[in-house]
Amino acid sequence: MASDRKIYKFDEVVHHNKTKDCWLIINGKVYDVTPFMDDHPGGDEVLLSATGKDATNDFEDVGHSDSARDMMGKYYIGEIDKATVPLKRTYAPPQQAQYNPDKTPEFVIKILQFLVPLLILGLAFAVRHYTKEK
């Protein structure tokens, strides 16, 4: 029912601008996209850059598919009180940690597991090659 919809003020929504707490305003609706941060094809940075403003133009400019639009329903949490949305946005950078413990360590470990043995093998080859009696 339309009367059951939660109405959010802009000031409530703008504070949800972190990787672990991200809300967006698109077409007058408020979406909690926090569970989608790791799965968004454009990365979480794209979603974070759309916080703190009406992200309708950002969303429409990308040309999302019908399935992407259908998916939005599960993240819908309410409506924005349009009277509280400022006409001009004051820039507030997204609050994302520089180090992402959910992604970075696995990648670094895999790279090191691959590179370290190669470096050791290359070093051993170089030592053997240059210390050989001629």
Results as ranks from 00 to 15, higher is better:
residue 125 F to E: 12
residue 109 I to G: 03
residue 109 I to S: 09
residue 62 V to Y: 03
residue 74 K to V: 03
residue 115 L to Y: 14
residue 111 I to S: 10
residue 9 K to I: 10
residue 69 R to Q: 01
residue 99 Y to I: 11
residue 115 L to H: 07
residue 59 F to N: 00
residue 40 H to N: 06
residue 50 A to F: 11
residue 59 F to G: 00
residue 10 F to W: 02
residue 22 C to Q: 08
residue 36 F to K: 03
residue 125 F to Y: 15
residue 72 M to R: 00
residue 126 A to D: 14
residue 98 Q to A: 15
residue 68 A to F: 04
residue 30 V to M: 07
residue 25 I to G: 06
residue 93 P to Q: 12
residue 20 K to I: 13
residue 120 I to S: 06
residue 98 Q to G: 12
residue 36 F to T: 04
residue 74 K to A: 00
residue 133 E to N: 15
residue 73 G to S: 13
residue 39 D to A: 12
residue 114 F to G: 08
residue 125 F to Q: 10
residue 130 Y to W: 15
residue 6 K to Y: 08
residue 28 G to M: 14
residue 77 I to K: 10
residue 94 P to Y: 01
residue 84 T to C: 13
residue 86 P to S: 00
residue 33 V to P: 00
residue 115 L to E: 13
residue 71 M to D: 11
residue 103 K to Y: 06
residue 64 H to Y: 06
residue 100 N to M: 11
residue 116 V to H: 05
residue 65 S to Q: 03
residue 114 F to E: 15
residue 78 G to V: 05
residue 25 I to R: 02
residue 118 L to A: 11
residue 76 Y to A: 05
residue 63 G to I: 05
residue 118 L to F: 11
residue 94 P to K: 01
residue 60 E to C: 05
residue 26 I to R: 01
residue 80 I to V: 11
residue 30 V to I: 07
residue 25 I to K: 03
residue 90 T to E: 13
residue 46 V to K: 13
residue 105 P to D: 08
residue 109 I to F: 11
residue 130 Y to V: 14
residue 134 K to H: 10
residue 14 V to W: 00
residue 19 T to C: 14
residue 84 T to K: 09
residue 56 T to W: 03
residue 20 K to W: 13
residue 21 D to Y: 03
residue 23 W to D: 03
residue 98 Q to M: 15
residue 44 D to G: 08
residue 99 Y to P: 00
residue 35 P to D: 02
residue 121 L to Y: 08
residue 43 G to C: 07
residue 78 G to T: 08
residue 80 I to F: 08
residue 5 R to W: 10
residue 28 G to Q: 10
residue 21 D to N: 04
residue 51 T to Y: 05
residue 76 Y to T: 03
residue 11 D to Q: 15
residue 99 Y to S: 03
residue 103 K to V: 09
residue 96 Q to R: 14
residue 67 S to Y: 15
residue 84 T to F: 12
residue 52 G to N: 03
residue 70 D to A: 10
residue 97 A to C: 10
residue 69 R to I: 01
